[in-house]
Each structure stands twice: as C-alpha cells, then as structure tokens.
Design a protein around this nucleic acid. Structure first.
Lengths: 292, 292
DNA sequence: TATTGTTCATAGATGTGGTCTATAGCTCCT
DNA sequence: AGGAGCTATAGACCACATCTATGAACAATA
C-alpha cells in the first residue's frame, strides 16, 4: 500500500481516457510504462482495477471506487497548480502593508495606485499603526512589509532606505511675523509647540535634537494625527513640527509657512521593513521592486 | 509545473509536521531528501512555500494556499487507500448474482447465507431472470456472476460446472395408481403434462429427449415458476417435470411421488457463469471459491 | 562566552526503478 | 487472410531520487 502517488496520476488518466495508449499520450509516456504503472497499482491493492479489452480498458467495480476518490484528489491538485501559477503571475494573492496613516497618504499611495493598476487582482490590505505596532504586525506575520521611519534596530528585521523626507516647523498666519526671520531653537521655545503625541520616530528625533543643544522641548499641544498637526497650525494654535513633504499643498497656497531655523534639522529616512531571512510573497517583492 | 505528484506528499507532511526532519521520519526518508523535494516544488512554482527557521518550517502565504488544496487531495488518497484495503478484505463491496428464482431458493441460498455470515459487510444483489436474460445481465456488467443450467455455449462466457441436479416427473395423489409401475414415454404422454413455460434449459432438455425417441411432448399446462409446477402437480392437475432436489420435501411427506420411467432422464448440470477473460471482483471470486 | 543540540542546506556518490524499445498476443474489421 | 487497433511482457538503460557526510545558522543551555 506504500504507493508512489505518481501511480494515481497514471491511473486517473487511464480511467479518464478509457485507454492506456491514450493515457500514455496525455502523460508523455509510452504505453508499456502506463501498463506497468497500472499493474503496480493493482498488485499493491491485490485488486484488479481495469477490464482490458481490444478497444481499451474499462474500470472494474473496484476500479470505479478508486476512481471516485482519485478523481477528487487529482482535481484538487490541478486547482492547486493553477492557483500557484496565478500567484506567481500576480493574478491572485494579497499584499499586506503596515505603516502610519501619513506615510500611506503622502508617500505610499502613488506606488499603491501604480501597483494596483498593474496587478488589479492582488488584494491590498493596509494596516496602520505606530512603528512599534507595525513591527509587531510584521513579526506576527500579519503584514508582508512595513513602511517606517528609520533607523530601526532589530536583528530580526531588514530595513532598506527608500526615501528621504525633511521635517520642519510650520506656522500659520497668526505667526506671520516670523516669516522672514531666522529663528534660534531657544527663540522657538517661546512659542506654543504642537507635536505628534505618540511614540513616533519624528517625535524622538526632535526631542533628541533639542537635548543635544541643551534645551528641552515640551509641546503645548499633542495630537494623534498629521492632519491635526497641520490643521492646528493653520488655525494659529501653535507651531507644528511636520514633514515638509506632507504640507506641500499648504506651503504652496501659503496657508502655512516654514519657520527658518539657524540650525539644520536632520532629514528623516523612510525605509521598507521586512523580516530578515524570511522569503517575501511574490506580490510583496514585486511591490518593493516598484517602490525603489 | 510538470511535477511529480510524489512531491506533494512530501510537501503535505512537511507542512503538517511543521518540520522537514519530522516529515522525513513519517515518510521513511532522510531529511536532505525532504529538503530537496521541497526545493524542487518551490523551484517549479517559482514561489517560496516555507519559512525556514531554527525550530522547523512554517508555511508562507503562498505555501498556505497550496496546502489548502493539497490537504484535500491527500485526504482523498488516504480514504481511497483505506477503501481499497476494505474491498480487498471484503469489509466492503457488493456481490451481484444472476440466476433463476428456483436455483436461488434451492441451491444458492445456503451458500449465500454462509457468505453473508463470513462477510457481513458485502451487500448482496440477486437478479433473477431466464438464462438468456442472465447472460445479458452479465454481458452488460449488471451482475458479477450467473448461476445457470449448463451447457452454455458462448465464447465470451466461462462456465464452470459446480453441481448436478436430476430432473424427473412427479405427480400427486390423483395419479397414485402410477406409483408402483414403470412407465414408458409413450404412456406418459397419455397424461396431462405440466412444464415450465419459458425458455428454460430444462424445458429444452426434455423436449429434445422425447424427440430423440420419436415423440413430441406437448404440455397441457405451462407455468412460470417452479412453485406453481409443484403446486399444480399436488392438486392433481397433471404430471410435472421438475428438479428432484427442488421437491425433496414433497417427496418425503408423500404429497408427491416420482414417476419411474423405463428410460433414464439426463442429469442437469448447474454452472457458475462469468465473463471470460474479465477479472472478478474480490467478493465474486471469494464466493465462487466457497460454492465449489 | 563557549557548548551543545537543534534546525535546514549543500555536495557528491550510489543504485534503484521508471521508462524505453522491441515484440508478442489478442480482438475486431475489412 | 491481412491489417490495425489494443494491452502485456521482456530486457536494457540511465536519470534521478535517495543516501551519507558535512556545513551553517540559530537557540538554549551551562
């Protein structure tokens, strides 16, 4: 009974075609090979599976029973192979990305659009969260890749830089007087500061920057989304620390302006984060190819 | 994509066990063999199916998709193999026999009882009909074997004699005067004769016998069943030509007696008829073994 | 920090067995 | 009788599945 499953494939086609010769053609084998394979199966069961006659073969009672099972089995394998081809060709499957809302909105979105256009059958799943959350998603296998601010130090993860953003302070009309001056960090602290509330990479970066100059930055207002950061600044509630690329529209229509500082603000690097040494899905690796 | 289906068996167990090493044990292979098999599958699809880590392996997204199909396929094969073993061991299956009602009742029945006791899981199908009908059943594959009177001359069929019966003329009390005499064929024709009506072997035999002596036997009454043949004779409607073994009860309780003739009546041979060069089901060959 | 015990991957050797060709036997049809 | 199907059988061959031996990576110990 310890059969080679390959024999079932031969049996299936022999039964389906009603002829060993025809089965051989389908399977790209010779007729004796097929004959031999069927004999092996019959011997292994101790049962005769086919009536042989001069026109071909016909299933015996027992052969019919076997066929009813093997047919199902073969159909499943065919479906599996089709599905695998589809996955390979990106005619199927899903792409699960983690990251912050703002990065999705301002950075990932155009690539997603292009990817979706090229591979409309791939379902897209966006999971937003803070960087630590995204890391957890990744480690739990809930996403294929994360789009996060660098640096990330985690030996399980692999992060490739893909884009550079510049954070800056912006203010609205209320602080128009600052428009044409260059401000020091100390001076800036005189004004109400609006920062992103959560454990974001940007928040850590700016805090460290002030500390490196001997100051402590304490926000007047903390908000939970980039949209609010922008909105509060526009309404004059304070000076927001945002990614310049995310307020390009507001800078252009001059509802916001950038505060010029006498020290350079460090650029922020966006990276594509994946599990180290873990293979990517076909869709994920194609997407990363696209984005770089 | 032209995969050896054997690889799916390896894949199935690797996924199921979550470990190539464990899969190897189940499959009685070495770990490198399993590793190699999985690699072959992955290469053939151009997709990675497993994450390898130090604890074993885990399905990737694509691997999971494949598994969901292959699992079904493998389950069907397992069921098929179980079923085949059951059929082989006669824990399952059916036995379809054709023949006349009277042969079933008086000859086949005890064997069927014994067979059923030994293999209670085998379903029994009895199809009664005249000999030509039974031959048709057999050729159409509706029965596995037929129990018929010999001889049968048909090159497609194989008939093995299994039992000998003796036909005879019997009468009831009305003809008691014949009880102690030896009768000639000519004398017999003076009395009303009751014969089986249909194209039975017994009818042909007796007709030929009379013809060989230059007489023609013309029944007064023709009936369609052996039971009626017996019943009519008992009631004195005539002299019936029946198989002696079928009226043993009536002969014993003397409601019927056998007419002694001055010529010997030919014995009738019962044979087991099967298709020549066609394999028998496990159940059928076991039954024939039993009956001989 | 080394040690030990897992895991899977790789390389190269080996021999089994699946596949081939050639041929025979059978049945049906012309 | 001959031809054209079909399947079965025999024997030869070589690809490839499997093996052993080893390496590399990682985790859980000491």
């Amino acid at each position: 009974m310890n059969n080679n499953y390959e024999l079932y494939k031969v049996f299936y086609w022999a039964a389906k075609m009603g002829s060993l010769t025809q089965a051989a053609k389908v399977l790209f084998l010779t007729q004796p090979s097929v004959s031999h394979a069927i004999k092996q199966l019959e011997d292994s069961f101790g049962l005769v599976l086919f009536y042989r006659n001069s026109k071909g073969v016909e299933l015996t009672q027992e052969g019919s029973v076997l066929y009813s099972y093997i047919e199902q089995s073969q159909i499943m394998i065919s479906l599996a192979e089709e599905k695998m081809t589809a996955l390979k060709n990106l005619d199927n499957g899903e792409l699960r990305i983690g990251g912050s809302d703002s990065l999705f909105k301002h950075y990932v979105l155009p690539y997603l659009e292009e990817f979706h256009e090229r591979h409309p059958a791939i379902k897209l799943h966006l999971n937003h969260g803070t960087t630590p959350e995204v890391i957890t998603f990744l480690k739990e296998g809930r996403i294929d890749l994360g789009v996060v601010r660098m640096p990330i130090v985690d030996s399980q993860l692999e992060v490739k830089e893909s884009f550079q953003l510049q954070d800056c302070f912006v203010a609205g009309a209320r602080y128009a007087k600052l428009k044409n001056s260059v401000i020091s960090l100390e001076m800036l602290l005189q004004y109400p500061i609006i920062l992103f509330s959560r454990n974001s990479r940007a928040r850590m970066t700016i805090t460290e920057l002030f500390q490196s100059y001997g100051y402590t930055i304490k926000p007047e207002i903390e908000v939970g989304s980039v949209d609010l950061l922008i909105e509060f600044a526009r309404r004059g509630l304070g000076i927001s620390y945002v990614t310049r690329e995310f307020v390009s529209k507001e800078l252009e229509d001059e509802s916001l302006f950038e505060i010029r500082l006498d020290v350079p603000l460090p650029p922020s690097h966006v990276g594509i984060m994946t599990m180290r040494n873990m293979p990517l899905t076909s869709a994920a690796s194609r997407f990363i190819e696209l984005i770089r």
